[in-house]
């Protein structure tokens, strides 16, 4: 019974940590959306900024990955 409660805590914690992935999704969407808005305003400058776009997405995504990592650790490693 005690183990079950601990397992329940793990699962709940992992599920809560997974919310972080959704937050990262918002961040990535923000970056991409703003890039698109800027690119439509000045399409000629957009081509040279794709690298910056991917770097920005990568940084936003990194924090979501930490949430994912926490979820994984809670599920399997703790």
């Amino acid at each position: 019974m005690e183990g079950d409660i601990a397992a329940m805590g793990q699962f709940i914690g992992a599920g809560l940590a997974a919310i972080g992935s959704g937050a990262a999704a918002i961040g990535v969407g923000h970056v991409a959306g703003n890039f698109l808005a800027g690119a439509l305003r000045n399409p000629s400058a957009a081509g040279g900024q794709t690298a910056t776009l991917f770097i920005g997405i990568a940084f936003a995504e990194a924090l979501g990955i930490f949430a994912f990592l926490v979820a994984l650790l809670l599920m399997f490693a703790v």
């Binding site: 397992a7 793990q10 699962f11 994984l72 599920m75 703790v78």
Partner: peptide
């Protein structure tokens, strides 16, 4: 892997990536 979620064998439930 101190407390396995289902208390079963390690290979079945543990993440292979963390083995």
């Amino acid at each position: 892997m101190a407390t396995e979620p289902t208390g079963g064998e390690e290979a079945a439930t543990g993440l292979p990536q963390l083995d």
